[in-house]
């Protein structure tokens, strides 16, 4: 029978906290940047111009249909060779994760917008609104309500996806725990604690999302 000893992890507490800080900070950056890419992707794929639509669709499918782990490695190792673009591991992984998340956000935002009845934008147009005005005043306020649960869900996935940046030696929680595990010869305790840390942050978030969904269901 394995003898658990979590006490040994205490001496690595600063390492873990550092890693957790990097993980949370990374998540904030890739969610915000991802939403920006997502907005461009969504409006691009709804554009009147075919060239813009095709560009947006190419971006979305390129990042949605390839594994994030491959993208991370490709951005860090292949871009310098192919395009001469040198990036630090942090820049490369932030960019890859933002674009990957952005491709999914694009589809969520696009789906939210087209789920609004066409009569709504027609009513806006009939009042004399430009397409931009009716998007801002009429369609988006209704669409955002429908997007929020899916956007939160995708952001939760993004939070966990940051664990992959450890392959580029970005010192996130998983990377630091690898260090701790090698040092202490206690991988079971280390990775169990890491799993608990991820869950401890995400479970409260999922509860908030579920409450939000219920409230939305009532108001519709």
């Amino acid at each position: 029978m394995y003898q658990w000893d979590f006490g040994i992890l205490w001496s690595y507490r600063w390492l873990f906290l550092n890693g957790l800080g990097v993980t949370v900070g990374f998540t904030v950056v890739i969610v915000v940047l991802g939403l920006v890419f997502g907005l461009f992707g969504a409006f691009g794929s709804l554009s009147r111009f075919k060239a813009v639509r095709l560009t947006a669709l190419t971006f979305i499918e390129a990042f949605r249909c390839t594994p994030i782990l491959v993208q991370l490695i490709w951005f860090y190792y292949a871009l310098p060779i192919l395009a001469g673009v040198e990036m630090t591991p942090i820049t490369a992984s932030a960019l890859a994760l933002s674009l990957y998340g952005g491709s999914f956000y694009s589809e969520i935002i696009r789906g939210g917008i087209i789920s609004i009845d066409k009569g709504q934008s027609e009513a806006g147009a009939a009042l004399g609104m430009t397409p931009g005005q009716s998007m801002r005043r009429i369609v988006l306020p209704q669409a955002i309500k429908r997007m929020i649960p899916a956007l939160m869900n995708q952001s939760i996935i993004q939070f966990k996806n940051t664990s992959l940046v450890s392959v580029l030696a970005v010192p996130d929680l998983v990377y630091q725990s690898q260090v701790a595990a090698h040092d202490s010869y206690r991988p079971l305790e280390t990775y169990t604690a890491v799993a608990v840390a991820y869950a401890a942050i995400l479970i409260p978030l999922t509860i908030i999302v579920r409450r939000g969904e219920k409230r939305l269901a009532v108001s519709e």
Partner: peptide, 23 residues
């Protein structure tokens, strides 16, 4: 787009399904 919008502002329209803004 702008010309159309300005023109439509001078005509009122009422739809079969109301199309009120629910929010």
């Amino acid at each position: 787009v702008k010309t159309l919008a300005r023109f439509r502002a001078t005509t009122g329209m009422v739809f079969q399904h109301f199309n009120l803004f629910p929010h």
